[in-house]
Design a protein around this nucleic acid. Structure first.
Length: 652
RNA sequence: GCCGAAGUAGCUCAGGGGUAGAGCAACGGUUUCGUAAACCGUAGGUCGUGAGUUCAAAUCUCAUCUUCGGCUCCA
C-alpha cells in the first residue's frame, strides 16, 4: 500500500496511507481538532502559494502540505457558511418547490443565495418560515456528499429540474471539472468545499431579502438575494447580532441627527446635505487642517465658479461619458448658451493652467481648491453623507513634467498618509484601480500611456512601502488611480483618498510648457483628494470615533456648567476667557441640577466640562471633568488651557 | 434606475375602520442644587402626499414622494 507524506503547518511531516482523508489526519493529531475541524487547505506548502480548500472527507492521494481549518480560520468559516447556503437552499426548495437557484456563496459575514421564486412573495414572514425549516434540516445532520459528474450529466440534471441559471453556469465550466454536492434531498452544482454535515450549524439567522441582477448585469433579470448568517453556537449568533446593534449606534446618519451636524430636506432635494452650525465647524476645522498641510506642501489655492460652459466638458470628454446621466444644462435667455453645474474641478483648473505660457522651470504647478461639485447619482445610490448629489472635494491638480510624476505621486501619498494618521485612520486598504482588461473601450487614451501611468503608480506605492491590492475595472475613464478605502461602522468599504495619474486631459485641453530644449511639451496631470470629499470623510470620521471627535475637531470643546444659577455670571467670565483663546464652548445656564447638566454634556459628547460653584468662584478656578473619564480635579483656567493646548491645536 | 421594507408630535416609539397616545425635548412655574435624568403644570399632530372604497379611513386599495437594506452605478 502506498503512502503519502503530509506536511503540517509547523513544518513537521507525517506519513499516511494514500487516500487519507482530512478528518482522519485531524483525528490523528488530536480529538479536539477533529471535533472542531471544518475544512482543510491542501498544498499550502509555499508561503506565497495558496492551496485549495477541500472537504475533510476528500481523499488525499499525493504528498501535500496541509492546514486544517476550524471556526477560527477564514477557510473554516467560509466552508461553514457555504454549507449554510446549501442548507438554506434545501429548506427553501422544501417550502417552495420549483424554485430556481443562481449562486450562493459565503461572504465576509455569512452567506447569500440568489433565487428566482417567480411571482411568489417573499418578505419577513417567509424568511422566518425558511429559517425554521433550516433549523429542522440542520438537526437531521445530513452528510454533504461530493460527486464528480460529467458535463452531460450535469446538463441533464438541471435541464430536467428546469433551472436555467445553473445551466448557464455549467455552460461556462469545462467537462471533467464539474462536481455536485448533495445533502438530504438537495443537490447543487458546486465546487465546494463543505463541512462534513449540517449538524454543526446550530444558530441560524436569515437577515434580509434584497434584489440582485443575475450575474450582476442590470440588463438581466433581477433575482431575490437572501442574506443569512450562521454559527456553531447560539451565543456567537447573539453576540454577532448585538455587535450589529452596537454598530448601528455609530451610524453617521443617526449621530449626524443627534449631534446636529447635518440634515436633509425633501424640499431642498434628495442627496443635497444641509450642514448645520456644529457640522460646519467640524468641516471647517478639517479644511483648515488640509489647507495648512497643502500650503506647506507647495500648493496654490484657487477658486473657480460652480458652473462652466458645456464646451468645457465636451473638451474634457466628461460630457460624452456622463452628460446624459447628469444634471442637465442650465439655459440662459440666449438660446444658444448652455452651462453645466460642475461635476468636477479639473477642467476649470486646466483653464487656469492655460492663462499664461508655462516654462519647465515653473513645474510642478499645484492648484488646490475646496471645490463643490454636483453629480446626478441614481436615486437608489444615495446614502447619508457618503453618497450625495452635491459635495465638496478637497481637490487639487498637479501639473508636472513626465520626469516629475513619480516624485510628485510619492509626495501625495505622504500627504494622504499624514492625513489618515492625524485622524487615527489606521485600518485602510490601498487599492490600485486599473482598467477592466475585458472592456478597454470604456477608457480613453493609448495603451502605452495607460501602462506607463499604471507602472508609475505601482512604483510610487512600492517606494513608500505601501501594501496595495490591484482591482481591475475600477480606474477612472481617463487614468488609473490609487484609492484609499476605509470601512464604515457596518463594514461597508468607502473610497476616501484618491490619487490619479492622467495623460489624457492635458492633451485634450492642449496644455503645454516650453522645455529646456525650447520645444513645446505636454505636461502630466495628477488629480488628488486626500479626504476624497468633505461629506464622505466626515461620515466615515463620525463612524470611526462614534461622534467622540478629537478635541481640535469637536464643534463644542467645552461646556461651562454652573452648579446653580448664582454662578452663571462667573461661568460667563470663564467662557469669555476661553473664547479669547479660540476655544469653542457654551455656558449651560439652564435652571437644572448639575447632574443633569453633566448628563446632557456627556450625551452630546462634549470633550470637557468645566464646573463652577462656590469654591471655584472663591478661588478663581474651574473643576475639570473629561468626557467619558470623569473628574480631573480643580485647576486654574490658564493651567487647563495649557495642559490641553496640544489637543486643541491642529495636528502637525 | 431595479428588488424588498418602512413613514404617526422636534426625537424615540405605541395604536391599527368609530373623539390621535406615551416618554423625552419645548414653554410657564416651584426649587438654587457639587460630578450621568428635580417637581408641578401647559402647549404641541390634516398619522409623508394625492386619489379611491366606506355612513365613517391614521387604519383597507391604488398611485406618488422620501427614507432604510441590497443590486447596478460612482468622473
Amino acid at each position: 500500500m502506498s503512502v503519502v507524506n503530509i506536511t503540517l503547518p509547523d513544518g513537521s511531516s507525517r506519513q499516511y496511507p494514500a487516500g487519507v482523508k482530512g478528518i482522519e489526519i485531524a483525528q490523528s493529531i488530536s480529538e479536539g481538532l477533529a471535533r472542531n475541524a471544518l475544512s482543510i487547505e491542501v498544498n499550502a506548502c509555499l508561503p506565497d502559494r495558496q492551496g485549495e480548500i477541500w472537504d475533510l472527507s476528500r481523499p488525499i492521494n499525493t504528498d501535500a502540505a496541509i492546514k486544517i481549518f476550524t471556526w477560527n480560520d477564514k477557510g473554516g468559516k467560509y466552508a461553514f457558511w457555504h454549507s449554510s447556503a446549501h442548507l438554506f437552499a434545501e429548506a427553501l426548495e422544501a417550502l417552495y418547490p420549483g424554485v430556481k437557484f443562481g449562486i450562493g456563496p459565503p461572504i465576509e459575514n455569512g452567506f447569500y443565495y440568489d433565487v428566482d421564486l417567480g411571482d411568489r412573495p417573499f418578505g419577513d414572514e417567509e424568511l422566518a418560515a425558511v429559517e425554521k425549516k433550516m433549523v429542522e434540516l440542520a438537526k437531521a445532520n445530513s452528510t454533504f456528499v461530493r460527486r464528480d459528474v460529467s458535463k452531460k450529466e450535469a446538463i441533464d440534471y438541471f435541464t430536467k429540474k428546469g433551472d436555467e441559471y445553473k445551466l448557464e453556469l455549467i455552460d461556462g465550466l469545462a467537462d471533467g471539472s464539474i462536481t455536485f454536492y448533495q445533502q438530504g434531498n438537495f443537490v447543487d452544482l458546486c465546487r465546494g468545499p463543505h463541512i462534513p454535515s449540517t449538524g454543526p450549524i446550530k444558530a441560524i439567522k436569515l437577515l434580509s431579502v434584497a434584489g440582485a441582477y443575475w450575474r450582476g448585469d442590470e440588463k438581466n433579470k433581477m433575482l431575490k438575494r437572501i442574506y443569512g448568517i450562521t454559527f456553531p453556537k447560539q451565543k456567537e449568533l447573539d453576540e454577532y447580532l448585538h455587535m450589529l446593534e452596537e454598530a448601528k449606534k455609530r451610524d453617521h446618519r443617526k449621530l449626524g441627527k443627534e449631534l446636529e451636524l447635518f440634515a436633509f430636506s425633501e424640499k431642498v432635494g434628495m442627496g443635497l446635505p444641509l450642514w448645520l452650525p456644529k457640522g460646519t465647524i467640524l468641516r471647517e476645522r478639517l479644511e483648515q487642517f488640509m489647507r495648512r498641510a497643502q500650503i506647506r506642501a507647495g500648493y496654490d489655492p484657487v477658486v473657480t465658479p460652480h458652473i462652466g460652459s458645456k464646451q468645457l466638458y465636451v473638451t474634457s470628454g466628461h460630457y460624452e461619458k456622463y452628460g446624459k446621466d447628469s444634471f442637465q444644462p442650465i439655459h440662459t435667455p440666449d438660446e444658444s448658451e448652455e452651462f453645466l453645474l460642475k461635476p468636477m474641478n479639473c477642467p476649470h483648473h486646466c483653464e487656469i493652467y492655460k492663462v499664461k505660457p508655462r516654462s519647465y522651470k515653473d513645474l510642478p504647478i499645484r492648484l488646490a481648491e475646496f471645490g463643490t461639485v454636483y453629480r446626478y447619482e441614481q436615486s437608489g445610490e444615495l446614502h447619508g453623507l457618503t453618497r450625495v448629489r452635491g459635495f465638496t472635494q478637497d481637490d487639487a491638480h498637479i501639473f508636472c513634467r513626465p520626469d516629475q510624476v513619480k516624485d510628485e505621486f510619492i509626495k501625495v501619498i505622504d500627504l494622504v498618509l499624514f492625513t489618515f494618521k492625524s485622524l487615527g485612520f489606521e485600518d485602510y486598504t490601498a487599492q490600485v484601480s486599473l482598467r477592466d482588461p475585458e472592456n478597454k473601450t470604456k477608457y480613453i487614451g493609448e495603451d502605452a500611456l495607460w501602462e506607463r501611468a499604471e507602472r508609475e503608480i505601482q512604483e510610487a506605492a512600492d517606494e513608500r512601502g505601501l501594501k496595495t491590492i490591484a482591482v481591475f475595472g475600477e480606474a477612472a475613464f481617463y487614468g488609473p488611480k490609487l484609492d484609499f478605502m476605509v470601512k464604515d461602522a457596518l463594514g461597508r468599504s468607502w473610497q476616501l483618498g484618491t490619487i490619479q495619474v492622467d495623460y489624457q486631459l492635458p492633451q485634450r485641453f492642449e496644455l503645454e510648457y516650453i522645455g529646456s530644449d525650447n520645444q513645446k511639451h505636454t505636461p502630466v496631470m495628477i488629480h488628488r483628494a486626500p479626504f476624497g470629499s468633505m461629506e464622505r470623510f466626515v461620515a466615515v470620521l463620525i463612524e470611526h470615533c462614534a461622534g467622540n471627535f478629537p478635541l481640535w475637531l469637536a464643534p463644542e470643546q467645552i461646556a461651562v456648567l454652573p452648579i446653580s444659577e448664582r454662578f452663571n455670571e462667573y461661568g460667563q467670565q470663564v467662557l469669555d476667557t476661553l473664547k479669547n483663546s479660540d476655544i469653542r464652548g457654551f455656558l449651560d445656564d439652564r435652571n437644572e441640577k448639575i447632574g443633569r447638566k453633566i448628563r446632557d454634556a456627556e450625551v452630546n459628547k462634549v470633550p470637557f466640562m468645566l464646573l463652577v460653584g462656590e469654591k471655584e468662584v472663591a478661588e478663581g478656578k474651574v473643576a475639570v471633568r473629561k468626557h467619558g473619564q470623569g473628574d480631573q480635579g480643580v485647576m486654574d483656567l490658564k493651567e487647563f488651557v495649557e495642559r490641553f493646548s496640544r489637543e486643541f491645536a491642529l495636528p502637525a
